[in-house]
Design a binder for these strands. Structure first.
Lengths: 234, 234, 234, 234
DNA sequence: GATGAATGAGGGTTCATTCAT
DNA sequence: AATGAATGAACCCTCATTCAT
């Protein structure tokens, strides 16, 4: 009875409940649509297409729980055929994560260059992070869920690096804001950073691009909470 | 190059960096100490001991990435011997998660019974949640990380149930608070709930019980942010 | 630790040590040069070229260890493109081996026709065998190394035939020599045959055409040993 | 047609012809008998048993051509079960080769210590090498056939080392013999060494322990050739 | 309670080969 | 002649689980 527990994965049916709140969920149909878009938009064709499929699955099911056969099935080919395009399963995550992190790094730098003051910078960083969910939803989820696991392998050392870079940027802004008297002094910037980071990134788990809440809408509410708390000013 | 990347698990050395912020990390030594404690404290002896070991590993490495051999090794026995104590690997997580969720449910009810008003209730709920990290750190991490995966199996349907119960409780308090004029009206209770939930639970990923920040300390700061935002009142 | 050991083929760097004594080794550059020669010398052009490349690789790495991609890579084309020239991988070895064996058979017959006496015949057979190393080095190595494996397939039944023909020729000469009082009587012709055969063929494993020892030089020394032993006559 | 050539291995029937001259061949029945012997003779039990089976197959079919399923089938278990005893397929060859090389090294040293003069030393070395065929037939064949392939992997660097050690020992004896006027001066010791080495080791390919020719018998004949050549003294 | 040998299903990956373009 | 995408079978290996001792 217990035997096949791990193998007998439940039908990949998408549960719509709140528990699994899967903003990252994608039916095969959506994947196909997506893929075609990727091809048209001039990606490297089949490669980008397959990467998108793999990314969604990694995000939904987890990296370990996704087999290369799953990916191949979703793509309508045999598992061996994937190796015509990629070295290995980890090469796929690797590519997915690098693309996202590179973009994110650039965004961070741009915001820092252009922001007028710490308050504006933080708000813009948050807004941009939410914005990234549109393009990099799967990558963000993977980065969050699998960093602990993947980070243990040399090849993925850059994940830790990226996390550190990230922290440095945000913490500096928070620090500057505190020094400038914009942020409260009774908050530890490091704790605050983590607070914000978690707040932003975890939204990817339940954010549904096809739902009524837009990324911008969520960002606005989160910014409100951050700026004023949830409690009314007395 | 691809070289069996996934098999060559890196030495279970504990990285101290921020990236892996592993509050859940436990060396074999600590596991052993822990286990002995569990035995002494009158659990069902060996069973509780093994459960503690399994829990830590599931929390650190993930459920799928933890093999029964890992657990057995950490316990100093052979993998087959585990089956004298447990039906299966999933029975172990099952037990770990149920214990935690039962306790949590009770806590929630108690808080609701005893809280004088919504504001106090929310604050107490947050404080208690952080408090749970002391006893249920591993369980919390597992609940967070593996719910998506485990929730897909009938046996673990109760995880979704628990998440919904949770949401119901918190949302009601937030709702009541808003109606009573305690919380801002421009915040969607559902978004707010998710915000708080993520904020609280994700802390488990980096909370280090042996670090300088106490669970209570973090709770305080988070409550401050929630109540007043990070921006100084002008 | 096990780490896909078999896949991670070491760089095809050529070790010059005695251990691998690879007379058959050929860098890509040498292969190319060789191939061009083959083309000029009027073979069927590209076909002969590819055959030369395949032969070298089969000789160096072994038939099983050489993938069609290895061959294609060395030829600067894609693996699928090889199938415009050859039916299959085995067609390649087949052709390589047949060409060599045909030539060898002819040589043997010629020597037998022309030799004045058993002693001269044996010496000439040895000399010619060593001479063949110039033109058929790869084929000889393949014949030696892969006969056991290939011989098991119907298609390559002729390998066994060739070996038997070979033995028949040599054994007859040895027999004749013994009857004629030229060779010692206390030696079993069959054992002697094997001795000589192994002696001759194994040289291909360490013979280096670009080294100081010429094929003729080695032949001379071997003939000396055969005729007089290594021990000084007292 | 060509398609399945490599997979459709011919029935493991043992060809008795001279071509494949398989002294290393062993029917499953013989394997089983052998294995039982190994167990009784106090080896590490099942492990030694499996190693013997694997060794025979590696020797007969080649390392690459032998699948772990072949080994498991021959042992009457499933392929996965092999991994209860060994890390990997290469761990098996590794163990087989090391055992043989260790024994051989010791033998060499002993002969050198005890031999009265170069002539006796060479003869004894040859005799002992042939003698080793009794206990290490499979290992010798593997060492010969697979060194080129295996030697390319770091793990098997010791194969090259062993070959060099070997050469050093034999060459020194030959050198000494020449200086002492025992061996002919017109023979290059290095060539002579290779000659002898090949002569000795290649016999493993056709030596049949159950045949009429004993290892000692072959050794005697070979020594005769070496000492007196095949040609009668005029 | 534990061992050690084994199972059986499946996982990632390789590779000879095919074929439309 | 060659490409590039795909096939399909097999390969080495892993791992949860069972069970006789």
């Amino acid at each position: 009875m217990a035997v096949d527990f791990l193998r007998n994965r439940p039908p990949p049916a998408v549960r719509s409940g709140e528990f699994c709140e899967d903003g990252v969920v994608a039916s095969t149909k959506r994947l196909t649509a997506r893929s075609r878009a990727a091809r048209d938009s001039g990606g490297s064709g089949r490669r980008a297409e397959l990467l998108a499929i793999a990314g969604e699955l990694f995000a939904i099911r987890g990296f370990l729980a996704t087999t290369v056969r799953d990916i191949a099935d979703a793509a309508g080919i045999l598992s061996g055929s994937l190796y015509h395009h990629f070295d290995s399963k980890e090469s796929m995550v690797d590519e997915i994560l690098r693309e996202f992190l590179d973009a994110q790094r650039e965004t961070n730098e741009q915001v820092l260059r252009e922001a007028s003051d710490p308050r504006a910078a933080i708000i813009e960083l948050i807004r941009r992070s939410f914005g990234a969910m549109r393009q990099y939803r799967a990558a963000i989820a993977i980065f969050q869920n699998e960093s602990k696991y993947l980070g243990g392998f040399e090849r993925f050392g850059y994940l830790q690096q990226a996390a550190e870079d990230f922290e440095r940027v945000w913490t500096r802004v928070l620090q500057d804001g505190r020094s400038a008297g914009v942020f409260r002094e009774d908050l530890d910037p490091k704790v605050t950073y983590r607070f914000i980071r978690d707040m932003v990134w975890t939204a990817v788990h339940w954010y549904d691009p096809s739902g009524t809440l837009t990324a911008d809408g969520i960002a606005d509410q989160y910014i409100k909470i951050l700026c004023g708390g949830i409690v009314l000013r007395e």
